[in-house]
């Protein structure tokens, strides 16, 4: 079973994402900001990260840059999942090391499509 860390400051979004990912047979962990997510990654590197952009303490793009420069941090497949839906944000995310990009609002079909695109399912 693959693991996915859901990083989002919204409890509702984490709950929705958890339900979708568990239906896709993922073992799901949660973090409410980038710093908490980094701690979880240091304990155990997930196979995938579903990552929000705008969060308190540490945002998604800073988390991603920290993750990619840390030992083993190049391994997880990172899929952004954010309300940032302009081209410059997409480019910035991909240059920072994201593998795919979901623009909110999302549903299970979009998550499945994007996870399939990067070989997670």
């Amino acid at each position: 079973m693959k693991s996915c860390l859901v990083v989002d400051d919204s409890r509702v979004i984490r709950k929705v994402a958890r339900r979708i990912l568990e239906d896709m047979d993922f073992q799901v962990n949660e973090a409410e900001d980038g710093q908490a997510a980094l701690r979880k990654c240091q304990q155990e590197m997930p196979d995938a990260v579903l990552l929000d952009w705008n969060m308190p303490v540490m945002n998604g793009i800073d988390f991603l840059r920290e993750l990619r420069s840390s030992p083993g941090g190049e391994a997880p497949v990172v899929v952004f999942c954010t309300t940032e839906n302009d081209m410059s944000s997409i480019v910035e995310a991909m240059e920072a090391g994201a593998n795919e990009y979901i623009m909110k609002p999302f549903d299970s079909e979009i998550v499945q499509s994007k996870f399939a695109e990067v070989g997670l399912i």
Binding site: I90, V91, M94, Y101, E109, I110, E117
Partner: peptide, 20 residues
């Protein structure tokens, strides 16, 4: 729509061939 470009379209193609 945003929904349509997220169904099956890899983000690399979105970046290369679309503009908002």
């Amino acid at each position: 729509t945003q929904f349509e470009v997220q169904r099956g379209l890899p983000v690399q193609y979105l970046m290369k061939h679309f503009k908002k």
